[in-house]
Every structure is written in C-alpha cells, then in structure tokens.
C-alpha cells in the first residue's frame, strides 16, 4: 500500500498540479460558474489525488482528474442550486452558465470570439467541446468522464460542430457584406 506522504508521490502530485491545475480550473469554472468555487473544487481534486497510488493511474491520470473534478464541481453547483430555490422567489433560470443576451452583449468586448460562440451552445455540448478540443480527450475518455454514452458524446460533438460551422459561415458572410458596404 502506498502512503500519501511518500516522497515519490509528492513529486508526482506536484507534476500533476503543474500540468493540470490550469485546465482543471477552466473546466470547473465552467461548471460552477464561479472561479472561487472552482478553486476549491480543484484543490479538492488534488487532495484526492494524494491518496491515490500513482502506478495505478498511469496512462489515465487526466481522465481520472477530470472525472473527479467534474463530480466535485457538480456537487458544489448543486448545493448552490438548492440554496437558490429556497431563498429566491422568482428564479426561473437554472444556476448554470446560461448567459442572457444582455450579459452577452456586456461581455462582448472582453470575451473572445470562440467564447461567444461557445456561450450559444447548450451546456452539455459546450462541455464536451471543451473536453475534446481544449483538453484533447478522446470520445471514449469523454464518455467515461461525463458518464454519457459514446453515441451521445459523438452526437453532441457533431451537433456542436455543425452549429459552430454554421455560425462561422454566417459571420463571414456578414463581415463580407459590411465590408462591401464600407467600400
């Protein structure tokens, strides 16, 4: 049995943190909608990693981290939701990352193009897109992380890509038109 305090483990956890802290934070923040809570989630994730025997995680460390992180983030987010439905009278919207058009407009200047496009996707599509293209996970890994079926993951990515493609096309056209007008 490995003990967490072993020197080898410490190095290993340190390396994992170096490499994955940022990506996990980005990921958790998408779920919790709040960086501070994301920080707690990620810290918690690494704490759990300390208790793991690293030889057994070899090869699927990233998958393990994202899985644990996701579950923890969802837990945290759920707690927030529970609170809201108790103390709010008129909260019709779920406490997810849904952004109203007004908020989107406000953020337009500060957020990048890709973020704006992502924000128009349903939450589940956004998540798999980030896992796939930001974190380089395979369909298989995404399926295991999110507990969605492989087919479902494929469908979500397919649909998301189709939407993004369409939007990019539309924007190009728009840009071309306005360019012409400006001439």
């Amino acid at each position: 049995m490995k003990h967490e305090g072993q020197p080898g483990n410490s190095e290993w956890v340190g390396a994992a943190m170096e490499r994955f802290e940022g990506p996990l934070l980005r990921y958790a923040a998408r779920i919790t909608g709040d960086l501070e809570r994301a920080q707690d989630v990620v810290q918690d994730t690494f704490l759990r990693l300390c208790c793991e025997d690293h030889t057994r995680l070899d090869g699927h460390l990233a998958e393990w981290l994202f899985t644990v992180c996701r579950r923890r983030a969802l837990d945290v987010q759920r707690k927030e939701r529970r609170m809201e439905s108790i103390d709010d009278l008129e909260l019709a919207e779920p406490a997810s990352l849904e952004l109203s058009p007004a908020t989107l407009a406000e953020q337009r200047d500060s957020t990048s193009h890709v973020q704006r496009l992502l924000a128009t996707l349903p939450v589940n599509q956004r998540e798999v897109v980030c896992l796939k293209f930001q974190n380089g996970m395979s369909y298989q890994e995404i399926s295991r992380i999110t507990n969605l079926s492989l087919g479902n993951v494929g469908f979500l990515i397919h649909t998301a890509l189709a939407t993004i493609r369409q939007r990019l096309h539309a924007e190009e056209k728009l840009a071309a038109n306005s360019h012409r007008r400006n001439l």
């Binding site: 802290e21 940022g22 990506p23 934070l25 980005r26 923040a29 960086l35 994301a38 920080q39 990620v42 810290q43 990048s112 193009h113 890709v114 973020q115 897109v129 980030c130 293209f133 930001q134 890509l161 993004i164 493609r165 990019l168």
Partner: peptide, 20 residues
Amino acid sequence: IRATANWLRIELKNEPCPKI
C-alpha cells in the same frame, strides 16, 4: 469539420488558464 475543429483547438488553447 476538420477546419472548424482546428480553429476550435487553437482558439481554446488561447483561453487563459486561471491560477490558484
């Protein structure tokens, strides 16, 4: 699809990683 995927990869890589 490949072009879109590449665009996404590049753009998403640029998203800053927060730090604790």
